[in-house]
Nucleic acid binder design. Sequence first.
DNA 1: GGATTTCAATAACGTATGTTATATTCCACA
DNA 2: TGTGGAATATAACATACGTTATTGAAATCC
Lengths: 254, 254
Amino acid sequence: MSLASLVRKLEQFVRLSPLDHAILNRASSERVRHFGPRVDIVREGEKPKDVHLILSGWAYRYKQLEDGRRQVVSFFLPGDICDVNVFILREMDHSIGTVTSVSIADLSREFFEQVAAGHPRIVMAFWWETLVNAAIQREWTMNLGQRTALERMAHLLCEIWLRLRLAGLTNGDSCDFPLTQADLADATGLSKVHVNRTLQELRAADLIVLKGKTLAVPNLDRLMRAGLFNPNYLHMDHEGRQLDAAGTTDAAAG
Amino acid sequence: MSLASLVRKLEQFVRLSPLDHAILNRASSERVRHFGPRVDIVREGEKPKDVHLILSGWAYRYKQLEDGRRQVVSFFLPGDICDVNVFILREMDHSIGTVTSVSIADLSREFFEQVAAGHPRIVMAFWWETLVNAAIQREWTMNLGQRTALERMAHLLCEIWLRLRLAGLTNGDSCDFPLTQADLADATGLSKVHVNRTLQELRAADLIVLKGKTLAVPNLDRLMRAGLFNPNYLHMDHEGRQLDAAGTTDAAAG
DNA sequence: GGATTTCAATAACGTATGTTATATTCCACA
DNA sequence: TGTGGAATATAACATACGTTATTGAAATCC
């Protein structure tokens, strides 16, 4: 229920000024809404009105075919922003549903206009967020198109793990993990049964400990190797900060 | 070798002023480069320097695993922009290769700064482009995760067809189609052999006529039904223009 | 304009993953 | 503290798609 995860994540990339912090702080406390678990926040076909910032809880973006086949196309973890500037589109092409209880802040069009006008570091941080999300979506395409079930699952777990860690939501080698095997099936394009088999295999190889709603990753390196995981697409490197230091001026970085 | 396709596409969404046209025109003629077919324009790991605008020809974005497995994650058609503002990232997480001979214009960081500072309609059009590309990538995730080989191929062909049409590159019911079956395999996550089988099936059902480097779609509606294709994700609806008319001010829409 | 390579077509066979079904464990809530 | 529904586990069987191999048809190249 805080924007700590967002700030922590964005500051991985640019250093934000105290004023930037204040702006984000205000925007994320003005219009906050709470949802129960397993509920839709946004439905395909609706007119997008605001941009949603996840303050707490897990959610996903999904698409569905008429016959019921369903694909989770991305996960939202605390600190994630649903889609900067979506409101310029006429209608949503996907739905957003909660996994756990979720608190979100609605960011208005006016907020983005204000940011665009006078807060180049936030603009830059949002572009970074946008580009990373695009990169994640490409990696999912790769994951579904080329990796085997085992690699695919290992890859997904690595990604979630690293994103949680960036948001400050891991504890040593374990973390909360509210996804069911059905969720994992929808995200990996596998059947529930095969997800189960695949998880057993990962457990047997001591790559994960998954029990109840907790995941532990005893050896991230080995899990990454099993998933052919290359973290480059998350663009977590700190070098971006140098961009900030190196002279992005206030008029720039649009 | 012109930016007609870009302008045609962007004006689907916002009306650009004569000055906007001039800006785009200059930017796309300053630094133009030409490439032969089947050549890499950008390689994974490189530092992104400019944003590339495709003036003519087809290209694709792809990722590769160490063992050689390769996934095409998107196609670039004339008028497409590779990634607005990529240069803020430290390194590329994918490569870009040409299919045909390609001409591109390199758009500099300075160009984007200039646009951000004083050309809100172009900013808005670029946001639209960015959001549509994100939506396309999500739809590919859906395509790979849930659709059968036949549906998947039909869906891909519908998408390419509609994007070409938007760019003004179709001729009645046919268009240039330089992709090989191997390209289609890399894009759909299928084997070459199965791509061949699938194309035969589409031909047998009179859904496509594909010969040499020409594709004809005698009945788009039927092909769309075969691919469970819902064009909403391309956000081609003209209503966006009303946003423009309705009062996006010069300071706004960032 | 024949040689060479790329691309497309077809066949035979193999397997990773899907499907259906049933049992078991877990957990929310009465 | 028991009870019902969800989540997980396991088994038996089915299939869509992959793999390897060969052939033929187009492009491409001296």
